[in-house]
Structures are given as C-alpha cells and as structure tokens.
Simulated assay, not measured.
Amino acid sequence: MSVKSQSPVYLIALGSFALGMASYVMAGLIPMIEHAFAVPVAIAAQLVTAFTLAYGVGSPVVVALLPAHRQRGGLLLALGLFVLANAASAVTTNFTLLLAFRAIAGVGAGVYLATGIAASTALSRPEQRGKSIAVIMGGMASGTVLGVPLSLLLAERLGWASALWLVAALGLIAWLGLALRLPALAAAPSVPLKRKLALLTDGHVMVILLVSLLAAIASLGMYTFIAPLLAAPEYGDIHSVTPYLWAWGVGGVLGSFLIGPLVDRIKGPTLTLSIMVILAAALLLLPAAASSGAWLVMLPIAIWGAVGWALQVPQNNELIKARESQGDGNLAIALNESALYLGSAIGAAVGGFLLILHWPVWILASGAGAVAVLGASIQMLNMRLTFSKSRCEASSR
C-alpha cells in the first residue's frame, strides 16, 4: 500500500476494533444490565441476540440496496449509525429501546465491515489486498481480545454504559478520520437488485460461504464450550478459563495480522485448505492435550484461535475477486459475515443440545474437528473440480 492509502485502511481498522468490542462486550455486561433494568437474565441476554441477528440478517439486505456510486457515503453512514446507536444505548433508560438500539448497531456494524473491506481493497494494489483485509480483520480481533476486557474493566468502575461510550468514542474517532482522509472511491458497476440476488446461484461463491459456515460451526461453536471442556476432571479440572481465552484471543490477533503477507503470495483456495486442516487438527487434539497438562493445552488453543480468525482474510479476498467484475463484492462479504454468525449460532445450539443429553464433553471437540474436516474435504473437492475445469477449457482452445 502507498503511504497515501495506508491511513484510510488503518482508520477503517480502528472502526473494526470498535466493532469487535461491540460484538462481544454485551455478553459481559448482561449481569449489570439485568440489575440496572430489573429484567431476568434470559431477557437481558436477548440484547446479544438482537445485535447478532440484525448483523447477520439485516446487513446483507442493506448492502444489497446500497447504490453502487455511494460506496464512500455508505461506509460513513454505516459507521455513523453504529456510533449513534451505541451512544443511544448508553443513555436510554428503557429496555425495549435498548433492544432496538442494539439491533440498529448490529446493522451498522455489518454494513460497515462489508463496505470497509471493499473500500480497503479498492485503495490497495491487487498484490496487497490480502494485507489490507488482514489489517481490518486484525483490528476486529484486537477489539475482541484487548478491547472487551478493557471496556468491562471500565464498566466495573463507572457503570455498564461507560463500555458503550468507549465503543462510540472509538467509532467516532474513526468516523472523523475517514471523513477527512478517505478519498472518493471508484463507483462499482451499477447492478440491479435482481442481478445481485443471482450471486446466490454462483457455485464458486456458495462453496466459499459453505466453508466459512462450517469453519464457524467448528471454531466459534466450540469456543462456547471451552470452559466446560477444561472444567471436566479428566481434562484438567480448571476453574478459571480466562488464561485460555486469552491464549485463544492472542492467537487470533496474531493470525489475523500474519496471514496478510501469505494471502498475497499463496493462492487463496490453497491457503484456505491449509487453514481448515490445521483447524481440524487443533480441535481434534484438544481433549488429549487437556488431559495431558493444563499448560500443554494452551498450544492447540492458540493455534485454533490463530487459524480460526485468519481464515476470513483469504475467504473475503476470494469473494472480492470472484464478484468484483459483477460489482457485488461487498454483498458477498456481507453474506460471508452472515455465515459466520449463523455458524456460531448453530455450533452453540448443537453443542448445548448434546450437553443436555449428557453426552461426554470430549464429543464437542471431536465433533467440531469433524466439521472442520468436512469443510476441508469440500474445499479440496472444489479445488480439484476447478482445476479439472481449467484443464478442459485450456485443452479445448
């Protein structure tokens, strides 16, 4: 990236840092909100649902409706909506309004990330797009790993609203910087909504989204149950899971940043396959590593976090390449983010159901590893089919 183009990309990453905080901090604020609004914990937890559903379902719809010649304005509008919704969440005294504001923040976050990644690639040379996406995804990972604990510490001292004020402040700084430094973006080809929906018939895109979905079921789904696994007597009898969550998160930050140069040197499908294989191995090794030693299990957990977060860099890069000429690359990215949230929900739901049935906890890690193996197999099959198709087309010329 040129010096001129670096600044907007890092400002977009600052916004994604705030997004990462907002995506995960609410779960830690639930006990405080339960007390502040005098609502049951099950009701307070719906604040997380409102954000994630709006993010996963609402943002692709908004991105699909975004005019092709308003990409810069759409990015600033989405980030501004995200900032205002978080500020409104911090000041409201009505729980119903708080739910609504969390949903609005979720839509703004999803649209911002999709348009932000598309903008960063537009500002970068083709051979450096992977690095740009890695910077933005690294910002989101850092917001989750570093920002969430910081905001929760602030909330313990100053009240739950202070965490959301911090999110809004960081988002506002990013918005002001982008308003000043983000140049006009080249208009994407104008595509009617009906043609945008044809994206769902693109087999290559659907395979990418399917692999992302399976990776999320395996990685984010298992993340929900890391505490029950490590708390089991046969797998360490660990009472504080915090160091292991930090290992997962720090691995995620490193993976998000380090994957960038690799994306620009290695073909995306090959890199995705390698990541899925490593993810499967790390998850399958979890029970054995946990039973062997409390510190030994840190290694597969850190690797799991690293590849789980890193995967979306080559995936988003491939989606942009696949749909750039059709002008709907940002919609493909929005659908990819939806696949991640849907996969996380599926993984958590299935794992919870198995625990209700009193299945042994190691089944969760093994099952997550098996899902990752399935994703790797689908990726490998798709690569072989693509290679065979390319050879047939070359021979017919």
Rank of each mutant, 00 (worst) to 15 (best):
R157E: 01
L311N: 08
L172D: 03
W175P: 00
L193I: 13
G351C: 11
L98Y: 11
Y112D: 08
L245T: 02
G106S: 01
G252H: 05
T386K: 07
S120N: 04
G20L: 05
P228I: 10
F225Q: 02
I266C: 03
L331V: 03
Q6F: 14
A18W: 12
G255P: 03
N317H: 15
T115I: 09
V241G: 09
I136G: 08
K321I: 11
R384C: 09
G268Y: 05
I33P: 00
A215P: 10
M206R: 11
L47T: 13
I104Q: 01
S388D: 14
L150V: 13
L47D: 05
I238K: 00
G143S: 12
P314F: 05
L271T: 04
G308T: 06
V373K: 07
G369C: 05
E337H: 15
V373T: 09
V277E: 07
Q6S: 15
L296A: 13
G108F: 02
L245D: 10
V107L: 12
V48D: 05
E156P: 00
T272P: 01
G116F: 09
M206W: 04
G221L: 08
V313A: 15
A163H: 09
G293W: 11
L176H: 08
I104L: 15
F101G: 00
V135P: 08
T386N: 11
Y24Q: 14
I104Y: 13
G56W: 00
L381G: 11
L123P: 02
L152Q: 10
E393H: 00
R181L: 09
M137F: 15
L170F: 13
A68W: 14
M383C: 08
W248L: 15
F51A: 06
G352P: 10
I117S: 08
E34Y: 06
Y235I: 04
A184Q: 14
P40G: 07
L180R: 15
L164P: 05
Q326C: 09
V167L: 12
N94L: 13
M26T: 15
I217N: 09
A42D: 07
P126T: 01
P314C: 08
G139C: 07
A44N: 01
I378T: 01
Q46S: 10
H35Q: 10
K389C: 06
P233L: 01
P261F: 05
F51W: 06
L357C: 03
A88F: 13
I333N: 03
